[in-house]
Simulated assay, not measured.
Amino acid sequence: MVELREQDPARLIGRMRQLLNDRGFSDNVQKAWLFWARQFIEFHQAQGQTQPTAPDVRAFLGDCARQRQLTAAGRRQVLRAVRCLLEDVLGLQLDGLRELEGELLRDAGPILLSPTQVQELLSTLEGSDWLLASLVYGAGLRLMETVRLRIRDIEPDRILVRDANGRLGRETVLPMRVREPIRAHLEELKLRHIRELAEGYGGVRLPPGLRAAPGTARSWLWQFVFPGPCHVNPLLPDVPPVRDHVPEAEARQTIEAAARDAGLGPGVSAATLRNSFAAHLIQRGVAVADVERLLGIESPGSQRALSPRSGPDPIESPVDTLTAH
């Protein structure tokens, strides 16, 4: 069996870099994983043991957590980097590593990402997928609230959030970072809508129970920001099909796949982005009551009427502080 202490660290890191590059990991993820791999090699060599064990990895994680004050998400990233080194580069299979990762997931509570990790996730996405994930994080939207957005819900500096029946529930910030991309996105959708109208289609599913004037379903303002497939009513085969929003499951899979591509591992979801939105605002000094209001969480302190732009200092979305896409 190959012993870790007998390996040339520079050669091991070179092999790991090539492996990560072949798998399409972003530059930021590669730098982070290679850094932790080097740290583990040095830690193991200082122990004077021939082969690493799961308790050694646990001790290394504890040492990193104490010295660098890592979050739970940060410790999971360290563990994934070490597993890549041991399992994929050296071909070692240590009993207990999967259980250790499970412990980190169970003990972590709500998963939170750092701004850098959010940037890494978003950098793996393009087009409407990037826009959707940026709104979940940048506006604190639930995933279903995001896919359910209609054109009429997008205002110049804010988003109107409605329930399944179309009733207005709250307002939240429209991030500066997404304003130009969403404008371009809506322009493309409008051209497609005009073509569909000319072909006799262009209708969308309306909220249940809505008493709407004839032609409302074909109105531009009622179109979905993230359109999905068209559906035909089997009971009304002569009625043109109507378009629905992108399926929530599809949007969820897109974000979770982006998290994996960014090397963030299992457990990161749309809810993680929303939780991180709240955490990053609070870390910047935004009042908890104001954060709860943006999230749509009812509490005595968040009941007051306040728009994202009110007050002397309008609330800045955390996505606006990230590196430009």
Rank of each mutant, 00 (worst) to 15 (best):
174 L>F: 02
175 P>N: 01
178 V>A: 04
185 H>T: 04
185 H>P: 06
186 L>Q: 05
188 E>S: 06
191 L>V: 15
191 L>W: 11
193 H>Q: 10
196 E>C: 07
197 L>G: 15
197 L>M: 13
199 E>H: 05
200 G>M: 14
201 Y>H: 12
201 Y>M: 03
203 G>C: 00
206 L>E: 01
206 L>Y: 08
206 L>R: 02
207 P>I: 11
209 G>A: 04
211 R>V: 12
211 R>I: 09
216 T>S: 07
216 T>Q: 08
217 A>W: 01
218 R>K: 12
218 R>A: 14
219 S>T: 09
223 Q>G: 04
224 F>T: 14
227 P>N: 13
227 P>Q: 12
228 G>N: 13
229 P>M: 08
229 P>T: 09
229 P>Y: 04
231 H>M: 08
234 P>A: 03
236 L>M: 13
236 L>G: 04
238 D>V: 07
238 D>T: 13
238 D>R: 12
239 V>S: 07
243 R>S: 07
244 D>K: 05
244 D>L: 01
245 H>C: 07
245 H>R: 03
247 P>D: 06
247 P>S: 05
249 A>K: 03
249 A>M: 03
251 A>Y: 12
252 R>S: 13
252 R>Y: 14
253 Q>F: 02
257 A>K: 08
257 A>H: 01
257 A>T: 07
258 A>M: 03
258 A>Q: 08
258 A>W: 00
259 A>W: 00
264 L>W: 09
264 L>T: 06
266 P>M: 10
267 G>M: 12
269 S>Q: 05
270 A>K: 08
270 A>F: 06
270 A>P: 08
271 A>D: 06
272 T>C: 04
276 S>A: 05
277 F>A: 02
279 A>K: 15
281 L>T: 05
283 Q>K: 13
283 Q>R: 15
284 R>N: 11
285 G>Y: 07
285 G>N: 11
